[in-house]
Write a protein that binds this DNA or RNA. Structure first.
Lengths: 191, 191
DNA sequence: CTGTAAATGGGACAAATGTCCCAAAAATTG
DNA sequence: CAATTTTTGGGACATTTGTCCCATTTACAG
């Protein structure tokens, strides 16, 4: 459930140590609940998660939130905005203490053009994201909560992070009430 | 509602005329309802729509379909599979007569590596797709049909294609019955 | 440790949506 | 053009999910 991209993380570890590239890369730490990116904001940087987990969500005009994904190590953030030259499409908030590699958008585009391995990793990152979001949307449309929830609970057991019910329900695109109801029906023990 | 990518189309027009590149690009025509890509199939090619419109949908194990998007001129198909080296994630079916540029997956990857403009266009295509799918998923979770449908009908008016109710409802992720009910409530005139 | 805020669990009812079904209209085909 | 299939429209009812609300529990700051 928490997506990672260890190949990209490894590449960033190398670049941040590499002679010609390390000066372009800095680190930043965030506490839990701090926001790395705010929706509609203009971004100057691109981030790659070194450690920790974030939630990436969109807030619609009716003030409701939809959690697109939970992202962990090696996941890329802000690349959409850097490539489209648009403001942020979603808000990114730390749900554990977080460390990210910081790269200016300009530098990011420069890396894309000059480091083939980087370019390839970003392409892979993007296509994986398209797949993941598509599958999530599809699954959510075509299955009932009763079918999806057990799988999700299963996946959750292997993560050691405490998700709030709020987060879980926003991820599932349902109300907390519905989540509770279904959890009770399933006869869950704990989250 | 029908996504296009005229910049990529233009580039393909140029490449298919270019001295060194034209031999790698062929054309293929499909009739309405013919499938260009079948889910779970292994793909050898990447396609760029020259003219016409397709629907791109996923079929879940419960036999239900979810229409991800309707794509028109200049849109890229099969790139996900070419980059991930995986089987097709969705089925692509012509909903109008269709002409596509055909490029082998190998050649596609080669273009990515050797033609910077092509690489950039593909990156842009991918980030746009991530945004579009995300926004669609979010919108669908957070708004009721009554809020979404009028907008969609509005958009539909500007397209001259006849969508079936089936297609529309699969795009919206609802049953045909619900779509009809809502259309009646809204007091629509025609699709 | 205590008070305040946040998160959880669930009752009661309303609203939205699905399922099943059938009849009318439209499109397709031999 | 008649026969058959597909598409459309909608009734009736079941199910799912949301909204509103409140009591209890848990977390957190002073």
């Amino acid at each position: 459930m928490i997506k990672t991209n260890l190949a990209l993380l490894q590449l960033m570890d190398e670049l941040s140590a590499g002679e010609h590239t390390k000066s372009a890369i800095t680190l930043r730490h965030l506490d839990i609940k701090q926001k790395l990116i705010m929706q509609d904001q203009t971004l100057q940087n691109v981030y790659i998660i070194k450690s920790g987990v974030i939630k990436c969500f969109m807030t619609e005009e009716n003030e409701k939130d939809y959690i697109l994904d939970f992202l962990g190590e090696g996941e890329l953030l802000g690349e959409i905005e850097a490539i489209r030259h648009k403001t942020a499409g979603c808000t990114v908030e730390a749900i554990t203490p977080l460390t990210v590699y910081v790269l200016s958008s300009t530098q990011f585009r420069h890396f894309l053009e000059t480091i083939p391995a980087f370019n390839m990793k970003v392409l892979e990152q993007l296509v994986n994201r398209v797949m993941r979001i598509s599958e999530k949307a599809s699954r959510h449309q075509l299955y009932t909560l009763a079918e999806i929830l057990p799988q999700l609970l299963n996946t959750l057991e292997s993560q050691q992070i405490n998700f709030t019910k709020q987060d879980l329900s926003e991820y599932l695109g349902i109300s907390v009430r519905s989540l509770n109801r279904m959890l009770k029906d399933i006869g869950h023990t704990a989250i």
